[in-house]
Simulated scan of single mutants.
Amino acid sequence: MPVVTTFVLGLLLAASAAFPPALAAKTAEAPPLARAVVTEAAGRLDDTLAAVARSAASLGAAYAALARDTAPPTPEERGRFLQNYAVKDGVVAFRDRQSPCGPEPAAEAPCPALLFYDGENFTDETFRQLSVLSRLGPAMAAAHDALPFSWVYLTTPGQNFAIYPYLPLAEAVGNYQPTEKDFYTAADFKGKACGWLSPYLDLAGAGMMVTVSCPVYDGETLLAVSSRDVTLAQLSSRVMADLAGIPGGRAVLMNRRGKAIAASDATVSAFIERENGKAGDAVVYFRADRGLAALGLEKGLASPDAALNQAGEEVVARHETDRENPIVFTQGRDAVLATRLAATGWYLVLLVPQKAAR
């Protein structure tokens, strides 16, 4: 058994003895050991989320520095851009024949794609941004390689777009127009801070995904939005695998409305993946029927685990009023502990049978 799993198991078995059996959800005090379990697990998730956000912010800072230091493109440089581009559905892909990936790289080749989402309506600013973005490739590669989670990309207010690894034009047309997409508007422009997009299903087949986007400013002037995608499997698989080793224990990750993000139980996890895939959207929730009805979601589905749904419903109900972290209560013969992640406001919810300690 892995060391982390043994550590968590020992803490939870000891902690669960402090919860008397109960038939309905009742508030309970969190013993120090139980608090340590959920804090340690949630802390690992928060650390990863914070690292991803710092990576996006650092890429934005690199872009801002290049934007200040890069001279306007020369006629020769502008000519090279004009000699090597392709257009599809109003999206322009600029190609570098001297790129180590070749003039037409394969999907996800280790090179950036430079795109423009306003047809051939080029301006001097279009070429200036291209000149800056063409110099950003090494920083994008370094950011991706340090945390190899899906895509790294940057969008300018003028519809210039750079993404790493390479995104072919046929797939890039789906991002038209990027400044109107959720990944752009997720940035906290008012607070000049990074913002997180609600978990969603990646239609390219990567599963559940989340995006962090950071606005890039020069004083009060918005220069760009720097973004990173992370699949939830990459983010949570290690933590969920460790918690799955607790006899009879179950762990789920959900957003503050109960949307299912991840689950330690293989059956529940497979249900989430299958139903989201069939719907082409993230439609599974850890909510009871009354909660789904209150959300008014036509496509919303409850998970196949009634106990998890009941626990999720209780966590959502307590979210606005219970400022304790973790939220702790008993549900039937289970002890339930729900810890709020600082970065996103999601909840890591653990259900532990009290009989496991006997």
Rank of each mutant, 00 (worst) to 15 (best):
A260G: 07
V38Y: 03
A36R: 11
A311K: 00
L201T: 07
L308P: 01
A65E: 14
K181L: 13
A30E: 14
P165G: 02
G291Q: 02
Q354G: 15
T231V: 09
V3D: 14
D118L: 08
A30V: 12
A172T: 08
A15Y: 05
F149Y: 15
V268R: 09
P138I: 01
D69L: 10
C194L: 11
K278N: 09
D218L: 07
A22T: 14
S55V: 02
L133F: 13
D182K: 11
Y217Q: 08
P247N: 08
R95V: 00
E125D: 15
A294H: 08
L301D: 05
S237K: 12
T27H: 13
P138A: 05
A67G: 03
G195K: 02
G195I: 01
K181M: 14
R135C: 05
D96F: 10
W196G: 00
L9D: 15
A71W: 04
V230C: 06
V336P: 04
L114R: 07
L351Q: 13
L223I: 01
A162F: 06
E324P: 02
G10E: 12
P75D: 06
M208C: 09
E125P: 04
P2G: 06
A22M: 08
D96R: 10
D96L: 06
D202Q: 08
R238S: 14
E171V: 03
F183Y: 15
S227D: 12
D334T: 09
P326T: 04
A36H: 04
C101Y: 03
L23A: 14
S134A: 15
L115D: 07
P353M: 07
K299M: 15
V173K: 10
F183W: 13
F81E: 01
A25D: 07
P20C: 02
F149V: 03
L232A: 08
Y184K: 00
A186G: 06
G300S: 07
V216N: 09
A317H: 08
P215M: 06
G245I: 10
T156Q: 06
N309H: 04
P199L: 04
N84L: 05
V315I: 12
V210R: 13
T156I: 03
E125F: 09
A241D: 12
I246G: 04
A288Q: 15
T344K: 05
P178Y: 08
P103L: 14
D89A: 13
R358M: 14
R257E: 15
L147H: 12
L297I: 10
T179A: 11
A53T: 07
Y153P: 00
M208V: 13
V8H: 13
V4G: 02
T185E: 09
M208P: 14
A30R: 03
L197A: 07
Y117K: 01
P2F: 10
G205V: 05
G280R: 08
Y164A: 01
V352P: 06
P32W: 14
F7K: 08
G102N: 05
E320F: 13
V8F: 15
Y184D: 06
A57M: 08
L292W: 08
V283I: 13
N276A: 01
D145A: 14
P138D: 12
Y285D: 07
A193W: 03
G174T: 10
Q98F: 12
R340V: 01
